[in-house]
């Protein structure tokens, strides 16, 4: 009876320790970032058109293993600062610190993303086409100089990108103290 009681005590103690340890582990910072995005609002299912305006590399980043493929740089271009529709066919012109020049083209919802050589988007496209993907042969070296061109109109970013790989982490929908608003090429009509 005494040994049974002692065994029961150990069992209870071990269970408490295991449950406590699991509680301490929590979620990784990468998982936390992805969780903060919330559920996909649609209307597109996963693929090059989904989650326009979201910070892509929160899930498609090199520290993340869940959402293949990983992007070197990605974002969404809008027609104007206040237009909710993405700009199809805009060019995003990037020059990195080593002089590598890349021109990406946005897809139907305004998304673009740079893929490292050997990666493909899986469903919905394969790089270098209308799906918004551009395959690059060498990784980007920061800082980056970026401009966006829609037709003949070009906006050159006045600052440099030093480390961020998702446009939307700095260019939120909401203009404010820590955001210049969305990425756009054409000004609002006066």
């Amino acid at each position: 009876m005494d040994s049974l009681s002692r065994g029961l005590k150990w069992l209870v103690l071990t269970s408490v320790l295991v449950v406590s340890a699991a509680g301490c582990i929590g979620v990784s910072p990468e998982q936390q970032l992805a969780n903060e995005l919330g559920p996909d609002p649609g209307p597109y299912s996963r693929g090059p058109l989904h989650r326009a305006g979201f910070p892509c590399t929160n899930c498609h980043g090199d520290l993340w293993w869940q959402d293949h493929p990983t992007f070197e740089l990605a974002g969404t271009v809008y027609k104007t600062p206040t237009d909710d529709s993405g700009s199809h066919g805009s060019q995003v012109i990037i020059e990195d610190a080593k002089g590598q020049k890349i021109t990406a083209q946005t897809n139907a919802v305004g998304n673009f993303f740079l893929l490292q050589n050997g990666m493909s988007v899986g469903r919905g496209g394969g790089g270098g086409g209308n799906d918004g993907s551009t395959v690059i042969t060498a990784g980007l070296t920061f800082p980056l100089r970026v401009s966006v061109k829609t037709g003949a109109v070009e906006q050159k970013m006045r600052g440099l990108i030093w480390r961020e790989r998702s446009c939307a982490n700095c260019h939120n929908k909401q203009l404010g103290a820590a955001s210049n608003g969305r990425v756009f090429a054409a000004e609002n009509s006066p």
């Binding site: 600062p81 203009l175 404010g176 103290a177 820590a178 756009f184």
Partner: peptide
């Protein structure tokens, strides 16, 4: 000027060509 401002009111419109 290009990055963080102390208040949102200090960035009344997006920085752009115009």
């Amino acid at each position: 000027e290009l990055g963080r401002r102390a208040q949102a009111s200090l960035r009344p419109q997006p920085i752009s060509n115009a």
